[in-house]
């Protein structure tokens, strides 16, 4: 069989041991597929979405209820975005828990981290585009956090929000970031990230002399596995979309600060920050702690003992235990705070 264009995106063969589901979890590939789904469904939504405060929520109602299959497209867009966060986090955990980030993959680790961060910003900007009473609280609280940054917080707020309070300049800025700015950056980074995977020698694995299993699978087999993953992901997206539609609420009719929010909850991936905000200083808990966590993630390949080459290509190598423990603690804390934050306040 002559390899097609799609086959040619893959190396001719890769080692059998490192191409197993239980090693990669298929997370990176699924993330790229979800991105693709997001671009397609997002482009469809753009035919109907109107980025003005008066029309935004109404145009989303139009998409959801009146456009044929618009509700399904919107639900798939929503669920792809949520799964993207989960899958990206899993991908990050996999890379750290297998110690795969050591040179020469250190730079690609940073590119991946940047992509993770951008997918969170993409998710948050998309969430704000609803411009309804369900997002209002997070919009006000989230953007007010920016003001607490010393020295340049107020200027940054004005640049991002486009005024002294959220309004029509905010919406058009968030829209532009969502469909253009962040999209362009993530498209470039995805290409770069994928290119570096191959440039750095594919999936991390021990040197040839130390490999237990010398077998390799062809790109045809690899593409078949990816196809299977894409089909199953698509089915999951559709089933989630049918049984759990994307949230929607009544439009913000007065100004953002005057309307009554429907809920006082952040989107789920910021619930841990919301939980910490209950404890005190918004700058400390809302900005500084997340930034410190990000910084620790950035420094993981630089400050912790490096994984031994001989231990590459499998889960939980002893040599980078410290990095694993650090990330495990951070992850568990974030999950714990998220659960705390999602409990109804009494």
């Amino acid at each position: 069989m002559r390899p097609s264009f799609f086959h040619h995106l893959h190396p001719p063969t890769i080692p059998t041991a490192q191409s197993r589901w239980r090693y990669t979890l298929g997370a990176g590939g699924t993330a790229i597929f979800l991105m693709l789904v997001l671009v397609i469904t997002g482009a469809l939504e753009m035919f109907y979405y109107i980025p003005t405060p008066a029309e935004a929520a109404l145009s989303i109602q139009t998409i959801t209820y009146l456009v044929p299959f618009g509700g399904l497209v919107r639900n798939i867009h929503f669920w792809s975005a949520q799964l993207l966060i989960v899958v990206s986090a899993v991908h990050l955990l996999r890379v750290v828990f297998t110690g795969a980030y050591i040179p020469p993959r250190r730079f690609n680790y940073l590119l991946g981290l940047a992509l993770f961060l951008i997918s969170i910003f993409l998710n948050f900007t998309g969430y704000i585009l609803r411009w309804d009473t369900g997002i209002q609280w997070a919009l006000v609280v989230g953007t007010n956090l920016i003001k607490t940054i010393p020295f340049f917080g107020n200027n940054l707020y004005t640049i991002l929000i486009g005024g002294s309070e959220p309004g029509s300049p905010t919406l058009i800025r968030f829209y532009t970031w969502h469909v253009f700015g962040l999209m362009i950056i993530s498209a470039i980074l995805i290409g770069w990230h994928a290119f570096r995977v191959r440039r750095d020698g594919g999936i991390a694995l021990p040197p040839p002399s130390l490999r237990a299993d010398p077998n390799r699978i062809s790109r045809f087999e690899l593409v078949r596995r990816e196809t299977l993953a894409m089909i199953l992901t698509s089915a999951a997206l559709i089933i989630l979309s049918i049984f759990s539609p994307a949230p929607i609420a009544a439009p913000i009719r007065l100004s953002v600060l005057q309307s009554v929010p429907e809920s006082a909850a952040a989107p789920w991936f910021f619930l841990w920050v919301q939980q910490m905000l209950k404890w005190g200083d918004p700058f400390l808990f809302g900005i500084l702690v997340p930034v410190i966590i990000l910084l620790i993630l950035v420094l993981i390949p630089y400050i912790f003992p490096k994984t031994l080459e001989s231990e590459l290509g499998r889960w939980f190598p002893k040599s980078n235990r410290l990095a694993q423990i650090t990330l495990a603690i951070i992850t568990l804390l974030i999950i714990f705070f998220t659960i705390l934050g999602s409990l109804p306040t009494s």
């Binding site: 089909i231 199953l232 089915a235 559709i238 089933i239 049918i242």
Partner: peptide
């Protein structure tokens, strides 16, 4: 098999 599941999900939708 997974194509069948996808098809089923699509029909359900």
């Amino acid at each position: 098999i997974s194509s069948g599941i996808l098809l089923l999900a699509l029909s359900l939708a």
